[in-house]
Amino acid sequence: MKRNPLTLVIGILLIIIFGLWLFVFQVRTTEVAVVTRFGNPTRPITEPGAYGKLPWPIEKVWTFDKRVQNFEDQLTERQTRDNFTLLMAVYVGWKITDPAAFFPKFVSSDDPIKEAERQLDRLLGNAKAAAIGRHPLSDFISASGNGTNFVGIENEILTTLQSQVQANNYGLEIEFLGIKRLQLPSNVSQSVFDRMTEERKRLAEQLQNEGDAEAQNIRSEAGRKAQEMLATARGQATEIKGKGVAEATKSLAVFQQNPELASFLLRLNALEGSLKERSILVFDQNMPPFDLLRGGTTNWLSK
């Protein structure tokens, strides 16, 4: 029977491809690998390149990213030294340093990296609680001169975590740690909102009252200045009038030339002035010029 060369070529190609997939694997420069034979780790690989292996299920390759992994833990509520409650989450940078030690501890999980982070999260819970409990709230939030103590708190958590990781030989290393979130429990947040509201109300009221007071001060000051000006003006007026009187008095000497006439004229002027408005005068017939009426033909004759 004649063989189809196309089928043969496809078959050979597929066999080569399957062979490569089954017998060869690559490790990237960002990865480390552990090869297991029937489940037992036989060789860790830390250098990048292409490597051979026996096909599955005899040998199996587990690759892990050896770059710095970064994860954020849960936002957990803890108590400060001065009995305030605080929610805090940190981010942690870690990397696999010993794949042979890392592999057996986390390989049972579907995702060893996630499982390692879950384990670190558990360790972090204790380290965080211990560090927060040692510090007052002012070490976390403070606008005073000394400021906060973020670096100190982060170092405490990092040191605790690193010692726990080293003690258990997880095959990984904690590179860095930092506080990512700081929050208050919801009921405390509400009371902070209430306080902020009252604070603002008080400030608004204070400002309005300050405005009233300031306005009153300005008006009072203006009134004072006005009265001062008027008083000064009245003083000046009196002074001017005094000077006028003094000047006028100088002419009195003239009247001394004939005191009798002067007296007569003064009295006459005074009499004229006093009779000007709503005066009632009763004259008899002897009073000049009405005396001119005496002796004439008048109406009493008819009586």
Partner: peptide, 10 residues
Amino acid sequence: TPNARKYLLL
């Protein structure tokens, strides 16, 4: 005394 009320007793 133009505006003064005047009473004359004869």
